[in-house]
Simulated scan of single mutants.
Amino acid sequence: MNSENNVVVSYATDADRATFFKKTYSHVAYAILAFMLVESILLRIVPMDWILAMMGGKFVWLFILGLFWLGSTLSDRLVFHPDRDKQYLGLGLYVLLQAIVFLPMIAMAVLYSGSEMIMQAAIITLFMFSGLTAVVFMTKTDFSFLRTAITIGGFVALGVIVVGAIFGFNLGLWFSVGMVVLASASILYQTSQIKDQFSTDQYVGASLQLFASIMLLFWYILRILMSRK
């Protein structure tokens, strides 16, 4: 075991903190690059009929969402396992799950505008994530008070998504805006927790937490852009 395992980031030396944040955000970048690679492969090899079935079949989509939830739970456990190999397995599994869930919407975005709309959503997401991260580090505010609101909002959103999938109604623009707010609050909360509560060896787990919120933010920004077409 590494001697850094029990050192909380907020109590670590400046050098150890810098190393932790460098590793964390590097892993977030690697996860995003891996997502892009896997998504591009899926777009090439998955038949369009299958993608349309994912979009059109409500029970198929509910199955995919259920699989994603189970996989996400497993990934979250793996990334905090003492074994580093299992941590990377958890992060890799989560990237794959995100690529599968994103496949129908990315395919539709490509049909609408090629890569233009996806690039716009990616740039907006990047700027929002950078701004929210800067708020946490520059203001040194403890955003742990957001936890209850994020938890309740997440369960409400999940319920609305499931009901919408079953009965086939459009969740609308304002739901997407609300989810962007929820994802932004999650980034504030998780960045604050990583800065104050994580230990310096938990950079793989920290990167998964941030990657998940970034992908949630990207999803609903892309939905908002697509709703304008």
Rank of each mutant, 00 (worst) to 15 (best):
Q87S: 01
V101D: 01
G114T: 10
A109E: 12
L97E: 09
Q98H: 03
F102S: 05
R84T: 13
P104I: 12
M108C: 01
L103C: 09
G90C: 06
Y88K: 07
L103D: 07
G90Q: 02
M105G: 08
G114V: 10
G92L: 06
Q98R: 00
A99P: 11
Q87T: 02
L96N: 00
Y112V: 15
D85L: 07
Q87K: 11
M117K: 10
M117Q: 08
L93I: 10
G90L: 05
Y94H: 14
G114R: 02
P104N: 08
Y88P: 09
R84E: 12
L97K: 01
D85F: 07
Y112T: 13
L89S: 09
A99S: 15
S113T: 14
Y94N: 15
S113F: 10
L103M: 09
K86D: 00
G114N: 11
M117D: 12
A99V: 05
V101Y: 06
Y112D: 15
M105D: 08
Q98K: 06
S115L: 14
M108V: 15
M108N: 10
E116I: 14
I100E: 02
K86F: 11
R84Q: 05
D85R: 10
F102P: 07
G92W: 04
Q87L: 04
L96F: 15
G114W: 08
K86T: 00
M105K: 06
Y94W: 07
Q98V: 12
L96P: 03
Y112G: 01
Y88Q: 01
L93V: 07
Q98G: 05
L89P: 00
L93K: 05
L93H: 06
Y88E: 05
L93W: 07
V95E: 03
V110Q: 10
P104F: 08
S115M: 13
D85A: 14
M117I: 15
Y94S: 06
I106C: 00
L89D: 03
S113A: 15
L89K: 05
A109F: 12
K86S: 03
M117T: 15
A107D: 09
M108T: 13
A109T: 12
L97H: 06
V95W: 04
L91A: 12
L96Q: 03
Y88H: 14
A99H: 02
V101S: 00
Y94T: 00
Y94L: 01
F102K: 02
P104D: 13
V110S: 06
I100S: 03
S113M: 10
L103Y: 06
